[in-house]
Design a protein around this nucleic acid. Structure first.
Lengths: 146, 146
DNA sequence: CATAACTCCTTGAGTGCTCAAGTATCTGCT
DNA sequence: AGCAGATACTTGAGCACTCAAGGAGTTATG
């Protein structure tokens, strides 16, 4: 097995474990999954705290139906609302509520702690996260589904 | 959002896209998923080409039931067989067949190509995969499920 | 040497995603 | 105007995993 495949496998394994940590922490403290946080972060970063579902899918690397289904619990617990577009009746925006924004801020703090904790060893080693960031940027085709 | 969380998010996004590439290539050429390949690689690396299902689960970061279910198609297409342990009737080994070994070798070549391709840009940039390998090694708790 | 406690594995129910198909709406061409 | 094709979204069926519960076997303990 060559180096590149070796690294890929490690990366996948690492990610699996990593997501479990976030899930454990986030669900016990805030009752949401890591996937939920990804959705909320994306909305939080968007202009006006809202996005079309299609764009959300693209940004998250999910299918349109994945977004539809993933938003349901977030709407149910009042973190996100559905907003129609007055100019185009096909589109339904997903928008953060005021509550959603507050809760997102809290979740982000938790997630930051977890992330800091994970990378603590690396920081101690003197390594910059910048290197990893740069590397990840070189990976091609980090786009949505085909 | 701090650096560590930023990097985590990128990593997760990258992995999603990455697995899709492997899946596309592997399923069209060999009719298996990336998850299947992970199982086969693990078995291929094990002493005698066989492992207890519990150990396989641990090694792959899956639950025991995930392994039971994941092995079913591999047994059905004859890449893996179930072998009882004469000393302990509780355990059932999962063992590579001769065919399984051959097919695994072919799949590995394909996967290596995909991986090389993915990291081609990074290699051109002069970056070593070693850095990434080292970083991934510092992440704590890359073990199985709790 | 019986029985309690543990281990290995499977199964049922539930979750979260996928693809494919369907509905509703918009846009462009003639 | 009116129709063809594109776009936004939802829904049904299916797949891959999870957890919880259960069956079968092994080990330790009194």
């Amino acid at each position: 097995m060559n180096d590149a495949l070796e690294v890929t496998l490690r990366l996948v394994r690492a990610q699996t474990a990593l997501v479990k940590r976030f899930d454990a922490r986030l669900s016990s403290l805030h009752g949401v999954s890591f996937a939920d946080l990804m959705v909320l972060l994306q909305l939080g970063a968007a202009e006006g705290g809202r996005m079309r579902r299609v764009d959300l899918a693209q940004a998250l690397g999910l299918s349109a139906s994945g977004v539809t289904r993933g938003l349901i619990p977030l709407e149910r617990i009042g973190l996100v609302v559905r907003e129609p577009d007055p100019r185009d009746a096909r589109v339904a925006y997903a928008a953060l509520t005021a509550t959603g924004r507050e809760r997102l801020a809290e979740m982000t703090l938790t997630a930051e702690e977890v992330a800091e904790d994970l990378f603590a060893a690396e920081r101690r080693r003197g390594g910059g996260l910048d290197q990893l960031t740069a590397l990840l940027a070189t990976l091609p085709g980090i786009g949505g589904p085909p």
